[in-house]
Design a protein around this nucleic acid. Sequence first.
DNA 1: ATGATCTCCGATCAATATGGTCGGACTAAG
DNA 2: CTTAGTCCGACCATATTGATCGGAGATCAT
Lengths: 157, 157
Amino acid sequence: MLKISKKADYALMALQHIASVQFGDITPGRVVNTKEIAEEYNIPLELLAKVLQVLSKNGLIESHNGPKGGYLLARSAGQITIAQILESIEGPLGITDCSHEKEGEFCMQRDHCNIRTPLLKVQDSIAQLLNNMTLEDMLGGTPLITIQSPSAQGVER
Amino acid sequence: MLKISKKADYALMALQHIASVQFGDITPGRVVNTKEIAEEYNIPLELLAKVLQVLSKNGLIESHNGPKGGYLLARSAGQITIAQILESIEGPLGITDCSHEKEGEFCMQRDHCNIRTPLLKVQDSIAQLLNNMTLEDMLGGTPLITIQSPSAQGVER
DNA sequence: ATGATCTCCGATCAATATGGTCGGACTAAG
DNA sequence: CTTAGTCCGACCATATTGATCGGAGATCAT
């Protein structure tokens, strides 16, 4: 339960990769294209492309067209939260259907609903959790990808 | 994103209702049947029935067959956690596909995966949150349902 | 300047999971 | 023994997700 979609998974992997390349010590500032990521992580190329499109559209990354083109983080890794990434792909956080009810629309159970308040509390807790975690935290937490470079030039955050 | 299924919603509503009846001051220990819950909360009868079957099968509630039959909480409200309820309906908690990988099966991205560890951390936090919240907490948080028929115990509305 | 190639982009199709429904089996009261 | 009421298990329709295809735009090499 509460499984996030594959697309969201791919988005996280891709952004982590872009961040590690862009802010790494090997080739800082390098532009990275879709194909590179897809091959590195065995992600279907076209699907990943679509995911990156959405991230670009939502202002998380910048796209550069043409040969030698690719993607670039729109802001620093510390300024991109997990919540922002997931919401870009899967839409706003909502444990229940009635989380974002507009004025005038109610779920069929609303009038006698007994679980709305406590569930919203749970939702807030999760939101807080995801908002306090950034891409930078992900870089530090796990061993970074290591591109085949014989001179292992210490990769750190 | 991270939306829980309707069935899980219904399960929570039903259990909250059963608990509030069983441990309430009006008719303590009363058995409550599917129809009563379905009508009270406008839930499709047959679907709710299926949900309750699963809860019964998983040992959260006890079923009593025949006329005057119905369901009863298997243990006290304080001993039933939200996590147990949700997992009964939607299966074990798993943010990612690789959360419960058996020995020998790996996702296609596993060898270079860079997000597994941090995501598992997030998952643990959510699990802790859901495990620390019980049905009893839900009873206290919201105004209890009020059956509007002090005289007749039976058909209303 | 121009061609060609490489990139991103939008619309389309299949697979899975969910929401919802139907008829049968059992139990216990009258 | 009859009968009404309950739980139970298998079935179908729909919606969301996963994956795919061809086209438009931009940059570099000639």
